[in-house]
Design a binder for these strands. Structure first.
Lengths: 152, 152
DNA sequence: TTCAAGAAAGAAAAAAATTCTGAAAACTAA
DNA sequence: TTAGTTTTCAGAATTTTTTTCTTTCTTGAA
């Protein structure tokens, strides 16, 4: 369960590129295939490595607008929250949703093709969810940084 | 450059699991290896597939606190912005940083081990950046959804 | 009808992952 | 220290996957 320096080196490499071969990794950290293989397998089994995913270029698939969205519910009861949470899971435009402390309840990150799509999403998919009281939108004008790499 | 239904099927599968073999994909979309191979290669070359990454479990590597952070600069000149942008790229705790429209300038997403680490980060790394005027933090209490999958 | 282009199938070769065997190093307990 | 145990790693063999090459099938235009 505790990560030694070799584990960390492997994780740092794999975070950046999930298609690195064991051979590549072995070479970069001066080990043979076997220990690298065993460690990666162990890290997967322990759930430290959660999954391998493919990152697409938003722009190139026509998803040009990112919006941060602060949502406030009518009341914070368990039922209201649970209903909202479940609905969010079914909305593919919502790529992040977190319950937060502060002057509103949820922070969402939405990705859509354009402003017209966002208007539709807002009107027909988000504001109609039961329990939703206030929605405050912030539009991304320029992306400075976006990474899946965690400090380790 | 234009994606047909087969391309989209491949992208949908690969977004969820970058370690699917060509054989697996071929089977799921009823094709042989060759066209799947050719299409994946093309999608990579065109940059539609940007990269393959490994997602780690935040909790299991001790990164227990996520914070959304709204930053306002003293002034919005090009130089001030550029300086801020460059500094952000060097901070591993910042996993997202976007320039947004509205009552503040930047929306950041920060991942750190705990509140003490965040305090340190805030005081010693963020607030000291030149040009930073206001910082407003929202702490994540519960993660509802977090995905790298884009609607396609 | 015939030719050319695009998409897919199948087979062969190259590369990678997986499994197996065993050696070296580190740690434990008498 | 010494013997026993565990952990970590190396090397080789096997299996699986990727990559490359050749061929077939379909479609559309001359």
């Amino acid at each position: 369960m505790t990560l030694d320096e070799t584990d960390k080196k492997i994780l740092r490499l794999l975070q950046e590129d999930a298609h690195l071969t064991l051979k590549d990794i072995a070479k970069q950290i001066n080990l043979s295939l076997t220990p690298v293989h065993d460690r990666v397998k162990r890290l997967q089994q322990e759930g430290i490595i959660e999954k391998y995913v493919t990152i697409l270029n938003k722009k190139k698939i026509g998803q040009n607008l990112t919006v941060y969205c602060q949502v406030t519910l009518i009341k914070q009861t368990h039922d209201t929250s649970e209903g909202f949470n479940q609905s969010i899971l079914n909305l593919p435009e919502v790529v992040e949703c977190n319950f937060v402390s502060g002057s509103f309840d949820y922070m969402l990150k939405i990705i859509v093709p354009d402003m017209e799509s966002y208007h539709q999403f807002h009107q027909q998919k988000l504001s109609v969810l039961s329990g939703v009281s206030l929605i405050h939108s912030f539009f991304v004008m320029s992306e400075v940084k976006s990474t899946t790499v965690l400090p380790i």
